[in-house]
Amino acid sequence: MLENVSLRIDVGEYVAIMGASGTGKTTLLNILGCLDSPTSGSYCINGTEVDNLDDDALSHLRNRQIGFVFQLFNLLERATLIENVLLPLVYAEFYPADAEQRAVDALSAVGLQDRLYYRPNELSGGQQQRVAIARALINNPALILADEPTGNLDSRSGTEILAILQRLNREGRTILMVTHDRAVAEHADRILTLEDGRIAEERKILHPRDAGAELSELAAKERIDESV
């Protein structure tokens, strides 16, 4: 349930949405992801009015403009990584001639170039989420929607995922992340807090946490632990 939510996300922004469960986070995410249309009001993505579009048009819009990253990764268990990453292109209007190369590039971008023909169950959770990110990149979408991307990961893998998202953001990707974890949200440039279906608080983060730096710290700490 959402009420009176007005929100603008600019190209190249990294926005986090926070809120306890039942505050409308998921509903907002569904609307932003073109999975559902608002009962009233309007939503415009990359110049396209989303309200009043039929199911086929919404599907097409998701395919073109949105890259999803889910909490539970949602990979095809029996398909190889490259097949998983290629999935959005199966439903694309035109299957690009360089599809395979693009999948390889996307997997390289998340550091899995050596595992193209592995299957998800041969990977750790963090690696699986990286495959999901590669899948979200393959269509070159206007917006990457990450729904609790670290929710199912240990803190180290979670930090790795956050580092990848931050790097993608620095490369110009627009990212919207939903989380209930303040520490995770503070990696974004802007945090919106939802309460009872309204935006209760909007905060700019002047100095977002740097996941890359946190990773180095973690590594240093591990080295000390080992030497003790």
Binding site: D56, S59, N63, R64, F68, N74, L87
Partner: peptide, 16 residues
């Protein structure tokens, strides 16, 4: 269901 949901999310239409 999850697989169907995923396919729909990445752009599969009903007819697909």
């Amino acid at each position: 269901r999850k697989e169907i949901g995923l396919r729909r999310a990445v752009g599969a239409r009903r007819r697909d």
